[in-house]
């Protein structure tokens, strides 16, 4: 047991190291100078004093350590990390950890709400679709799933805003994250994510319903409720895998939904920082996200082994069989 834990921990640290290193190199390789972005953006009047510009740019570069080699910069970042310091944002000058901590709760709230909705919709309509396979209700559900998977998110988001905020006046457009503002972005994300889960539930339930034991149980006249419960139980495992993937995606930020609903989450913040070349923020964001994904994976595995004791024998294989 201890051996397994140590191995998993080592793997996690290795992944973190790889991800941050690759990102570090990539952001530095990509052209575009953060200093120029900061100094040059929307100046009121074009300057003729280029010497002053150069001097200020050099000053900022050395202040942020951008004049050092990439290796030194990375080592400095890792050293900071060991002291739990992610550095300061070039754009706002505030600690990256503070900024991420400010934005993460809004993202987490939205992610959990959206995931719950996805699961409820997925289980209910997936089961409905499987039970009535081939009937009109099954077809309707599948058509809606295909449509939802093919419509751009902004269409759903803007139509919702137009209706609920402007026409009906029941939704408030502001820049705050509050419970009363949560439901519309959550519903939007729930709707786009649900088809995936509906699909998995339907397919697995159909397969399970086709199994011999179910057929014979049916033949023996066992109560459908009991059979459904049994079938549902074995469907839960793949659903769990889907849910963990979905949660990982939601935590790293739903950029379009956040931006349309002015939800102060981490996705829009990360994208802005990427466009502004705010290196410490990109770096800190990646670190936090990789950690989150690793944690979600570990958690999923743990839940898996609780739900399905066979795992302990088979090892990781089954836990990933539906990834």
């Amino acid at each position: 047991m201890v051996y397994v834990l140590v191995r998993k921990l080592l793997a996690a640290v290795l992944t973190l190291f790889c991800a941050t290193l690759i990102l570090f190199v990539l952001t530095r390789l990509s052209p575009g100078d953060p200093v120029k972005v900061l100094l040059g953006r929307s100046a009121e009047v074009a300057m003729s004093d280029t010497a002053a510009y150069q001097q200020k740019a050099d000053e900022l570069r050395s202040q942020w350590g951008l004049d050092q080699s990439v290796t030194d910069q990375y080592l400095r970042w890792v050293t900071g990390l060991l002291k739990l310091d992610l550095g300061n944002s070039m754009h706002t000058g505030r600690p990256v950890s503070t900024e991420i901590a400010e934005r993460l709760p809004a993202t987490a709230l939205l992610a959990v709400a959206a995931l719950l909705l996805q699961l409820v919709l997925g289980l209910v309509f997936g089961a409905l679709s499987a039970i009535s396979a081939g009937k009109w209700s099954d077809h309707v559900i599948r058509w809606i799933c295909v449509a939802l998977a093919s419509i751009p998110v902004f269409v759903i988001g803007l139509v919702f805003l137009l209706w609920f905020a402007v026409r009906l006046g029941v939704y408030e457009i502001s820049s705050e994250a509050s419970l009363s503002r949560l439901w519309l972005p959550a519903v939007t994300l729930g709707l786009i994510g649900a088809p995936q889960i509906i699909r998995v539930v339907r397919a697995n339930m159909l397969a399970e319903l086709g199994q011999l034991y179910v057929q014979s149980a049916l033949a023996r006249g066992l109560a459908l409720r009991l059979i459904i419960r049994q079938v549902m139980r074995s469907t839960l495992l793949p659903v769990l895998t889907m849910a963990s993937l979905s949660l990982a995606a939601l935590i790293s930020g739903a950029v379009v939904v956040e931006s349309i609903f002015a939800w102060p989450g981490i996705g829009k913040y990360a994208l802005d920082s990427i466009l502004l070349k705010d290196y410490p923020v990109i770096q800190g964001y990646a670190f936090v996200m990789v950690t989150a994904v690793i944690l979600i994976n570990l958690l999923t595995e743990a839940v898996y082994s609780i739900l399905d004791p066979r795992i302990r024998r088979k090892g990781v294989a089954t836990s990933e069989s539906t990834a």
Partner: peptide, 14 residues
């Protein structure tokens, strides 16, 4: 694992 945890947008921009 690394790629799964990686912000796709960063890669695209790079």
């Amino acid at each position: 694992d690394t790629l799964m945890a990686f912000p796709f947008m960063v890669l695209a921009i790079v």
